[in-house]
Design a protein around this nucleic acid. Structure first.
Length: 440
RNA sequence: GGCGCCUUCGUCUAGGGGUUAGGACACAGCCCUCUCAAGGCUGGUGCACGGGUUCGAAUCCCGUAGGCGCUGCCA
């Protein structure tokens, strides 16, 4: 039997991190077992069904790297993959329920008549749970169709899962209490229920369900701020799941290999942006320069940094890669390398250049650098340190004014690396220019 | 209210009868150091509570409390 899982979001114009994690777990499960991952859009509420809202889902999943085998944009053997286009299928299944005497009309809507028995849910995450459905007062018959003919989630969801031959349904724990009702529906439709796995919810810092208002509740937030997909995937999978052995930074390939439903715990998790942020830095540090360029370049382009060719951009990105935590910070970190019109931070100028002797130091450094033929960070370091020694000052007393003179600020990439990237001409010119700002 | 699920540092978690209860983020201090990071070291804070069972409970059982979810003609 081929494993078939799905992600079935409603197009709200927003891809929630909880939804993204549900998608991730389904994707991981399918990929791990050599199965298929299906994308189905649950747009029974047609008001929400806009092209933009659909696109947000596609973009988010694509960004995360969660590819699907069947879906509205891809087709497949069990389409259409939008509920708004599956009306005939629902009618057909409703007829089956009618024929079996499982439904009745109630003020224009259609309700499913519960068999009123105990339903056993055997959940891959939660274990065996019995639900006593015998009391109509506490478990009323669910509505499956509104008087206006539109369908209710429970019904279409089950019908689609049957029709699309899904074998495993991994979803949020908010559906655990709905599951016995869904199983009743499967039975009435003569279908075998899939295996269910209910994963814990993601909560905000107040312990409430993460809402749109909470920072980091939307995948767009991570895309815009310059998180890497690898870090977000990593963080999301660590919420409610652990591979053991104190592993923290994992790449997707490792996660695909290690992931299993057995190690999903059952308690809800509070979303911690701090840790996600840390993980992002870890992934940036660990990734190849090629990957970093691929991820950072759009941010640099968007900021309009005049780097010219990609060949010129590469060394700049290389020296900030170990420092940067958000890709959106990259333009700010490399901007001074591509313009002579960079801002001079007043505080930094005050602290490092307005010091007695600063001019002499810059002059000495400038003269020393002028003789350097091997313009590499290693020999630049040697030269700078030797110059400081000659002047009888500590390395730092030379480094700080130089950094401000060359970049306009007191923090940045490694000084020698940035001088190397700057090149001899620009370095000497900037040192010269800074003398006018420096104290005698 | 009813039903279901859950409860290990502030947060994410490991641990499922004998552990000095481990790791990570965050926080503090120190080291390294050209800044900022990274890295290294150190530190504090935790088994919700009450009863059992047991020689021994964070771990098993019962209860209580708290949290979350469902109880929609939302998904």
């Amino acid at each position: 039997m081929t494993v078939r899982t799905r992600f079935a979001p409603s197009p709200t114009g927003f891809l929630h991190v909880g939804g993204a994690r549900t998608a991730l777990f389904n994707w991981l499960f399918a990929r791990k077992h050599g199965g298929q991952f299906i994308l189905r859009i649950e747009d029974t509420d047609e008001k929400r069904n806009t092209a933009e809202a659909n696109q947000v889902i596609f973009d988010g999943l694509n960004w995360l790297g969660l590819d699907w085998d069947e879906g509205p944009d891809k087709g497949g053997d069990y389409g259409p993959y939008r509920q708004s286009e599956r009306n005939a299928i629902y009618e057909k299944h409703l007829a089956v329920l009618e024929a079996g005497g499982h439904v009745y009309e109630d003020e224009g809507s259609i309700r499913f008549r519960s068999p009123r028995k105990t339903v056993l849910v055997e959940d891959m995450v939660c274990g065996r749970i019995e639900f006593d459905m015998s009391n109509p007062a506490t478990h009323p018959d669910m509505t499956i169709r509104r008087p206006d003919g539109s369908w209710i989630f429970h019904f279409v969801n089950v019908v689609d899962d049957i029709e699309m031959k899904l074998t495993h349904v991994i979803r949020g724990e908010d559906h655990l209490s709905n599951t016995p009702k869904h199983i009743e529906l499967y039975n009435a439709l003569g279908a075998t229920p899939p295996k269910f796995g209910h994963i814990p919810l993601i909560l905000n810092h107040e312990g409430k369900k993460l809402s749109k208002r909470d920072g980091g509740s939307s995948i767009t937030y991570f895309m815009d701020l310059g998180y890497t997909p690898e870090a977000v995937i990593n963080y999301l999978c660590l919420l409610g799941w652990s591979p053991g052995e104190n592993r923290e930074r994992l790449d997707v390939a490792e996660i695909r290999e290690l992931f299993d439903l057995e190690h999903i715990n059952r308690r809800n998790a509070i979303f911690d942006l701090d840790k996600c942020f840390w993980l992002n830095g870890q992934h940036i540090l660990a990734m190849s320069l090629e990957r970093f360029v691929q991820l950072a370049k759009p941010f640099v382009d968007k900021a309009g940094i005049p780097y010219g060719t990609e060949v010129a951009l590469l060394p700049a990105l290389a020296i900030v890669k170990p420092k940067v935590k958000h890709l959106s910070d990259v333009p700010d970190w490399i901007g001074f390398l591509f313009t002579e019109d960079f801002a001079m931070d007043a505080e930094a100028v005050e602290k490092s250049l307005k010091k007695p002797g600063a001019t002499a130091r810059l002059r000495a450094l400038s003269e020393a650098f002028a003789t350097v033929t091997d313009w590499t960070h290693a020999s630049l370091e040697t030269t700078l340190k030797a110059t400081a020694t000659v002047l009888g000052i500590k390395t730092g007393e030379m480094v700080h004014p130089a950094r401000v003179a060359l970049s306009g600020r007191s923090v940045g990439p490694g000084l020698y690396e940035m001088i190397e990237v700057l090149g001899k001409d620009r370095t000497l010119a900037r040192l010269e220019r800074a003398k006018s700002l420096a104290a005698e």
